[in-house]
């Protein structure tokens, strides 16, 4: 067992982990943030996606010990006290989800894309979503949501729509 330090959504945590523990389980069961989901444990579905030191990562494929000292953002950390992130608003508006299980990957990958490029090309949008499986929507509304979020990112002075 080994102590590690993680900053998750701005809160500092010190947890003792087994070297075999996957980051997704440490986040879910030790930190207690269950918004990050387990879908496949092979890095294929993206339901376990978090932002790890500024880059999205599939936390089922990360050993927790290797994340010692890192800054992590989970789906719970996307909204601010002022309200939902524009990406979340766009997914809600466009019905970019049904069961919601894939949302950690869809939302955090979109946030990362728009942080890098507020006006992404269509193929970049597809490539961003391509690493995350959704079995409910058929992706049409997800791609629309990313485009809507991008449009909003380019017009930050516009107030987001009320829920």
């Amino acid at each position: 067992m080994q102590p590690i330090r993680l900053t998750v959504n701005g809160d500092k945590h010190e947890v003792t982990v087994d070297p075999r523990d996957l980051l997704v389980y440490v986040i879910r069961e030790r930190i207690g943030l269950t918004g990050t989901n387990v879908g496949c444990l092979t890095g294929d579905c993206g339901a376990c996606t978090v932002t790890l030191d500024g880059r999205t990562a599939k936390s089922c494929s990360v050993l927790a010990v290797t994340a010692d000292g890192s800054e992590i953002r989970t789906i719970e950390g996307l909204a601010s006290p002022a309200g939902l992130d524009p990406v979340q608003e766009a997914f809600w508006k466009e019905n970019g989800f049904q069961c919601g299980y894939c949302l950690p990957g869809m939302l955090l990958a979109t946030r990362e894309l728009l942080d890098e490029d507020p006006d992404p090309a269509e193929e970049d949008i597809t490539r961003t979503i391509d690493g995350n499986l959704c079995r409910c929507t058929g992706y049409t509304t997800i791609l629309r949501a990313v485009r809507t979020a991008a449009r909003r990112a380019q017009h930050r002075d516009e107030r987001p729509e009320r829920p």
């Binding site: 879910r28 069961e29 943030l33 269950t34 918004g35 990050t36 989901n37 387990v38 989970t74 789906i75 719970e76 996307l78 909204a79 939902l84 979340q88 997914f91 809600w92 508006k93 019905n95 989800f97 919601g100 299980y101 949302l103 950690p104 939302l107 829920p163």
Partner: peptide, 21 residues
């Protein structure tokens, strides 16, 4: 009408079976 449970799902607050401990 947009989804009533949207806020819970979009913020990771919705509880799936594996979230019960």
């Amino acid at each position: 009408t947009r989804r009533r449970d949207g806020a819970a799902l979009l913020t990771g607050r919705a509880r799936y079976v594996d979230d019960y401990r």
